[in-house]
Design a protein around this nucleic acid. Structure first.
Lengths: 355, 355
DNA sequence: ATTAGCACTCAGTAAACCGGAGTGCTAATT
DNA sequence: AATTAGCACTCCGGTTTACTGAGTGCTAAT
């Protein structure tokens, strides 16, 4: 994604570009030569600035909405700006504090964490926050517990190594004495512990044959359980989105139809999810996708700042924000980066907590 | 809420009012006398219709957005219309089918059901769906299960009579052997089963003193558990909202600021929740609140169709939709009523499933 | 009581009309 | 050679004006 920095773009111009972008981000009005002279100390006259601006336009970093208007950054301009943010801002100490507090107040289990992360990203950015949950096949089974609910209902609780908890009520054809239940529970636990969750599913569904007779019906039951509990058509990666409503305030979307199409993309989570997933597969770190850099046409008027988060060494999920192109990139990047760091820590903590 | 039907509003006028509303709901354009003559067979001339319309306006059922425009229903007009919907439409057979299928595919546990209900309401109405979850103090404890996760983490699973499942990971100060855990689990279960969940909380937090010595530390532990698991600052009734994004398409909200304030109310769930809660306390059945009939000023441009749902005989929660005043009330009422019926059945099924 | 007819009102749209912000270019200045 | 002052030009956006047509209310005739 990184555009190589032309030598021709000497320092003065770069400063100017930054000033324009900075100004535009604040005011949302096309930036004219006079504003620049007034508010930023370049020691140049408006005429000179005009010349430079004109150059920058020829080079594709700026554009005029119409003749006789000021300049507005293009995607390329933003890109250059983002790339030049060498010294990444860090989160203000207060902010980091606030984030951590928010987490500790909430539950320690994974789903809760996903939800609050998405909310937090949105709250602190005033944009839309997204978190793609860790993939099932990267998370290992810590424990599988069967709890009788009386009658022929059973509660299946699946706990993964990193704190993801899933539960499901399963109704059996016939009742089952509770001591049988614990027996089965232990067998299953022994056999399956430490396997990836996706494995657990297939293990049970496929390898029934190889089991000795006495354990046979344990597995028949197990099969029934798993089929219901894992809910095959439920995707194993979920996207949590917080702050959809902020989309309304995106400054660029001045008409309803644009607003509406964007809303629909965000609503229809799996599109977004698959984009983030690709991001994840491509490896790690923080990426910024600006406007037209997004493949999805519906997203070409917005920007995405996202980052993969890890359990131990593996990138397992993605989190980020979706906002207008006219975005305070520096702050947003700091935010995403900060939250990623914290999430990483928390997930590895989960991991370490295992007996 | 029911406005008494004036004798003065003779049949012909009522029919006319209905026609106007019907027409307006479809077209969103002020309805003029000509349209009425053309599309509805009243056997009257436009002039006569005009007179009648003028009457209806004097009586407050209609209003002109400006002189020389057609008429638009007032809240009072809608109200009258809704009240005159004697024969409630029932859901189309296909629709009911679709709803039931949707449920069976999804999980049987309560939270999942709440979520899919809110989604369904929104999907079928194209408006915004809301479900207020059953109150904790109306639901009884079926089972409280402690599951060791190894180390000093414990998973507390709380299952209520009607299928609500809550889980929480609790980290203890010191590790606890797993046989102690099951022992404690049984004690707690015996003692607390069948109590309302709110009771469970207070029982454990308050009555520690009265316990014999040998069970003493069970309760010390329990106390620790409960305090964390029930998460005191979490409200015990939750509002599930689906289809917020549909608000964008509400025809009445033609400017951004209105849109935005409405969004904020819906976002800030507890305001809505408390309104619905009041609805519940006031007893049962289906209510329609039209525009200014809503206390909350932010809601005075929309309508609410809601209904309480029951477990057995008690109204425990509320569900409904929020849409524009210009709404197909007949269909919406049928929808809410239909969904309520199904939800009632499912909840009572949960109840009956207990051993 | 109903209706035909007509004068009147007014939203909404289009056309015409500025004012001003901002540019590009040229010629003068450093 | 780079910078700057000055000026003509462009075009957006807001405002005014004019016009159309849908729809009404009223009066007089049926």
């Amino acid at each position: 994604m990184r555009v190589l920095q032309k030598e021709t773009l000497e320092n003065r111009k770069r400063k100017l570009l930054q000033a324009v972008i900075y100004q535009y981000v604040r005011t949302a009005k096309p930036v004219g030569s006079h504003v620049i002279v007034d508010k930023y100390n370049f020691g140049l006259s408006s005429a000179t600035v005009r010349n430079l601006l004109s150059d920058l336009e020829k080079e594709g970093f700026l554009i005029q909405p119409h003749t006789s208007a000021g300049r507005v950054p293009t995607d390329k301009g933003y890109r250059h700006y983002v790339d030049s943010l060498l010294e990444i801002q860090t989160l203000a100490a207060g902010e980091e504090e606030r984030i951590r507090k928010e987490y500790s107040a909430r539950s320690k289990e994974l789903e809760g964490m996903m939800i609050s992360t998405s909310h937090m990203l949105s709250a602190m950015s005033h944009y839309t926050g997204m978190v793609l949950s860790p993939r099932l096949d990267k998370t290992l089974l810590r424990r599988l517990q069967l709890v009788s609910l009386g009658g022929n209902q059973i509660l299946v609780v699946i706990v993964s190594q990193n704190g993801l908890i899933r539960h499901r009520v399963v109704t059996l054809k016939r009742p089952l004495p509770s001591e049988r239940l614990t027996a089965i529970s232990t067998i299953l636990n022994d056999r399956l512990k430490g396997l990836p969750l996706t494995e657990v599913r297939t293990q049970i569904l496929d390898h029934i044959e190889t089991v000795e007779q006495e354990q046979r019906d344990a597995f028949t039951l197990a099969r029934e359980l798993v089929r219901e509990a894992f809910d095959l058509n439920q995707p194993d990666q979920e996207l949590y989105v917080g702050g959809k409503e902020n989309i309304i305030d995106f400054p660029e979307l001045n008409d309803f139809s644009q607003l509406s199409t964007l809303m629909k993309v965000v609503e229809e989570k799996n599109l977004l999810a698959s984009i983030l997933e690709k991001e994840m597969k491509k490896g790690g770190g923080l990426t910024v996708k600006i406007g037209s850099e997004n493949k999805l046409p519906q997203l070409r008027r917005v920007s995405l700042v996202s980052s993969t988060y890890k359990i131990g060494e593996n990138a397992v999920g993605v989190l980020g924000i979706l906002g207008p192109r006219r975005m305070e990139y520096a702050r947003m990047i700091a935010l995403v980066e900060g939250v990623t760091r914290i999430v990483n820590q928390m997930l590895t903590r989960f991991d370490a907590d295992v007996e």
